[in-house]
């Protein structure tokens, strides 16, 4: 499942930034790729693709700055929703 999530995220991000391959731990914010619009699109993508609602307090750069952290965040949210 992790692998699947990672691939989906990668498939969304790579065309946006026109750079391949993107390392799982490359900080897309620090690299300077992320403008306001892209940030918004990234959040919307995650909500629509994985059927989750990103809460205000979860809008933390440490959840969104690289493929690894995004995967951990999404997996955590999905686990929680399964438990409920």
């Amino acid at each position: 499942m992790h692998h699947n999530i990672k691939n989906k995220i990668r498939q969304f991000i790579e065309p946006q930034i026109n750079q391949q391959p993107l390392e799982d731990n490359s900080d897309i914010f620090q690299l300077g790729y992320v403008n306001s619009l892209f940030a918004m699109q990234l959040v919307s993508f995650i909500e629509n693709e994985f059927y989750i609602k990103v809460k205000n307090e979860e809008l933390d750069i440490n959840n969104f700055n690289c493929i690894d952290n995004l995967t951990t965040y999404i997996t955590g949210k999905l686990d929680k929703s399964i438990q409920q």
């Binding site: 914010f29 992320v34 306001s36 619009l37 940030a39 918004m40 959040v43 205000n56 809008l59 933390d60 750069i61 969104f64």
Partner: peptide
């Protein structure tokens, strides 16, 4: 919301 996300990030 875009602006909010910008500030948070």
């Amino acid at each position: 919301r875009q602006m909010y996300i910008t500030y948070k990030f």
